[in-house]
Nucleic acid binder design. Structure first.
Lengths: 204, 204
DNA sequence: ACATTTACATACGTAATAGTATGTAAAAGG
DNA sequence: CCTTTTACATACTATTACGTATGTAAATGT
């Protein structure tokens, strides 16, 4: 086989990343061998070691690559404006819908929630996710503080508690669905779920 | 070393189980070697293979052993009676408190949520947990149905949705805390959290 | 008491897999 | 056009850790 051009090389890199997504999501991090991924990507382990430092680095790069859509969904929901409640409802509903519609996003979530242990090797990849989470919680806290001050939400609400409650609900909800995806349609149920959450937060 | 009596053997079994809890919770399932556990338990791998079938079986037995307190908390909250709301609030608060107070329970949750991948080996242990979950969701759905019918909760509430919302909130909340245990005290926050959840479910 | 089983420890074999070193042919660069 | 570097493939090495086989001394059964 001839040597590939720079553009072709980038394609194989993407191919490996995609193969990693597929195989990691199927077998979990520890149980997948680099050769499984190589096979799925139609390359050899040599190619993987050329493009990535090793198993852990490949994992981290994959997480970064395929986690981007999440940030975009979150951001777009903000950009579309409206009240804080509107934004959070959009984020909730869009995240749930994307989880059911977008196989890549589903795979990434399955991998990071159910298919990888927190071990030293993956420290960096995990740290990334944690950062994203903390950032999100921070955003929530500030938003809640304002919304409460503006009278958009119940005056006796604690912003910190509310932020955690929202975050916990969303993540718990997604996790519940991921564990048994046939038990219900998260895409259809999401609007009712957020709605229920907010009815307790709104001023009576 | 002399051979141990039957009672002593049971003690070593317990010792191994406890060591497994400690080591698994620290390094995760895949990354811990049987020898690490043996070392922590002050025995050899021989002892482990004598008492358990192997790594996966030890894991399963450990999960079963240390998951029992969870069931007891859930059940006791039921036995103490009161309205359905009372029961759920107690369950929520007690689970959160136990998570912070009881190192064993915390370790088991950390292991099953963050420190083990779903892989074929652990199918049985995971299936156990899933069964417990489904049982819990079933209980919730029936309870919500009754409570809604009795007028204890908002009439326009969907029992299935409500059950999922409660379950998702509790699990999401515990997960959030487990990920960063220093960020807040789940034991102190839990009452406010359930309260917030229910204010949206109560009839206005 | 003697035979048998139990509760482990020790020692061994072995399969798997990660990382690395080397090979190679073709692009990139001048 | 010639050199260098890139983009992989191939081959090798080394370790890790699981399972198992074997050993043994004392407890348990009769």
């Amino acid at each position: 086989m001839p040597r590939r051009t720079k553009e072709e090389a980038d394609i194989t890199r993407q191919t490996v990343l995609r193969a990693a997504l597929a195989v990691f999501s199927q077998h979990g991090y520890s149980a997948t061998r680099l050769e499984d991924i190589a096979e799925a990507a139609r390359v050899t382990r040599g190619a993987i070691y050329h493009h990535f430092g090793g198993k852990a680095e490949l994992y981290t790069d994959m997480i970064i690559e395929y986690s981007q859509p999440i940030g975009r969904i979150i951001q777009q929901a903000i950009d579309e404006g409206g009240t804080f409640e509107d934004i959070l409802k959009r984020q909730f509903i869009r995240m749930c819908a994307a989880l059911e519609d977008d196989a890549d996003l589903r795979a990434i979530q399955e991998i990071s929630v159910m298919k990888t242990e927190m071990m030293p090797d993956l420290a960096e990849g995990i740290a990334r996710k944690m950062e994203g989470m903390e950032h999100q919680v921070q955003f929530l806290m500030e938003g809640f503080k304002e919304a409460i001050a503006c009278g958009q939400l119940r005056a006796d609400l604690d912003a910190e508690e509310a932020a955690r409650a929202y975050f916990a609900s969303l993540n718990g909800y997604m996790l519940l669905w991921l564990l048994d995806q046939s038990s219900f349609s998260i895409k259809k149920s999401a609007p009712a779920a957020v709605d229920m959450l907010f009815k307790g937060m709104l001023p009576s």
